[in-house]
Design a protein around this nucleic acid. Structure first.
Lengths: 200, 200, 200, 200
DNA sequence: CATGAATGAGGGTTCATTCAT
DNA sequence: CATGAATGAACCCTCATTCAT
């Protein structure tokens, strides 16, 4: 029956290599040869597992997005209360964890750039963001229902918080000195309080 | 004797062309030939006025940044009160004006990506951001002095507000549907209120 | 599995093509495209087998030098006596053989020019010349030992003979009419006689 | 009647600049802009005084050659005896003077390369060389007439001596360590003795 | 599945030359 | 005479992609 397929493994290898190389060199700067070398594969093999370079980018976006969402949901599931969940979500994004994967962070910024001119990237990028606003909106609605929050426009509030998170990502990756050490999560919580009322 | 220098004019032409082309195709995707064509110049002339493509990018960053700051300062000077200034700053960034120059917005996002891997771009990008946090911090301090605001960490608060603005830029450029129409400025003001106290 | 490497073959092809094209057009005048065409290869392939054009030049120098030295040594090994060896060395360089490979001769002249401004070429060029002076000095020393020659400065004498050979190369390639037909080897032997004494 | 022409002066400036730049960068590597800068002139002006880059090269060859021959003749005129003249000629080329103008030396080597593929350069280069062999042959003939030399083929001998001089130039410029300090002139005189007989 | 040689279009950049001023 | 902006072809090199093995 031939050898067992290792396609999934190879694809993961390649995706990981793209993320690594791209974080340092950008998407255009990450040549297929570079990616292949980083994945310890031959250049030809990359095109055996992916139709073209762009497909790798989309797969990487998919991967980053899925991993991020899974980790987020795992975090949220530890907290039953809306407020605690909100704080957990903020901490998840702006706590020490943000530094844990600088390559993913860099790729995220770069993906926002690619989203500007590529419909598929944009769609997938937007979907990934919307998954976070969905979580945020759900938390807010639950908080409103429980009286913990006051908010008559959960989507707008969720969107605002997402903007703050995304903005902090950009600052962290490109202008870190502008963020006073350790202030990001705390400030965001205060801003959330301004948005959602209740006790801070 | 000799032809009068028109370098300044040509450089402006080229910078404008880069911004236009880059907004559609990204920085790497904007070939010098494309830029030259958009500027209605010959390819060789681009390198007569700029040492290399990268210099055009830096000049464009400089230009965008300077123009933005000048316009911001003009806006701020119309308002004497800290709270009014804060709102003006927010409106300036998130009001209708944001849509006024979608190419500049796209370039801004792309520049954040370039900043990731290029020291010069990063330094200039960071400086541009810091000029805005400087304005924000000054407004906040003035507000604290006048009793309008309560804040014991103006730089952190300024940084948080900047993050929100930058994040909204990213969302606006890449995932517009996630921002409920017209909510950005209002939400940001509420968040600022959470951060700075006083009356909304 | 995979295609068998033919790098050595391709490199030889490319080196040969460079020598041929360079002899007619000079080094700068030999575009990579020209070389590729002369080698009947695609332009891209040249850079697959050589990092850059300069590497081809160095490889060509290496090749010319190695081939020349091997042929010289083969010639010398046919003669046991110092004087016969000396004459064989002179004949090898200035006999009919010199005309046998006009392209190599032209390249040699051109390489001396490149050596002027390129350290690597210069080092390799010098080493190639020193291999000939080494042979010459060894022959002279052997002749002195056997009483065939009288010379108290073999390196200087070797260097002088090398100069004459090199000079004849230049004249042969650029001002052939100045060399009376067939006089080069004979004159050089006479000069060697003046240098080394003994019977002509 | 308008300003006095400074064409001659400008041409000399440009020729000198080419020699200087070419010595460091080669002929192809010496861009017209480089030459203009070295001559402290504008690029356009170079093409006012020379039809094209190649004309500058020819003019430089002419200049180098003329200067060299004039200096040589001045030297020779100091000595009435053939043997003294021969030694003066050798010393002139291989004495300390050779180091006096390394740029001219480098250009001379480079010109031999250009002569390979350019008919005009070759013709002028050959003529310059023939002027030296003419002097040499004349000296030899005079020596033969006076009984100082014995030689039945003055042109061949002259050619051989020229080859040695030219070869020493190449070695001096590209492989100086191969020439034992101060040996060049002495060795050449001994070789001349082998060629021309008489007392050394 | 895997290799790595091969392709050829296109990239940024240089440059001899021209020309309006 | 002089300037320096302008041109456009050509250069070296990179690279996504294909394909014989």
């Amino acid at each position: 029956m031939g050898r067992p397929s290792n396609t999934a493994e190879r694809r993961a290898q390649i995706i990981g290599a793209l993320v690594r190389v791209m974080a340092r060199q950008g998407y255009d700067g990450a040549s297929v040869a570079d990616v292949a070398k980083a994945a310890k594969l031959s250049p030809g093999l990359v095109h055996y597992h992916f139709q073209n370079k762009h497909e790798i980018l989309l797969a990487a976006l998919e991967e980053l997005s899925a991993r991020h969402l899974a980790a987020l949901d795992a975090r949220l599931s530890e907290h039953p209360e809306p407020r605690a969940q909100l704080h957990a979500l903020i901490d998840f994004h702006l706590g020490l964890g943000a530094d844990a994967d600088p390559e993913a962070l860099a790729c995220w910024i770069l993906l926002s750039g690619e989203a500007l001119r590529d419909g598929k990237v944009r769609a997938r990028f937007e979907r990934s963001l919307s998954q976070v606003t969905d979580r945020l909106a759900a938390i807010i609605r639950a908080g409103v229902a429980s009286g913990a929050f006051a908010c008559n426009a959960p989507p707008a509030a969720a969107s605002a918080l997402l903007a703050t998170l995304q903005g902090y990502f950009v600052l962290a990756a490109t202008a870190r000195p502008l963020i006073p050490k350790g202030s990001a999560a705390a400030m965001t919580k205060r801003m959330a309080h301004g948005l959602l009322g209740g006790e801070p």
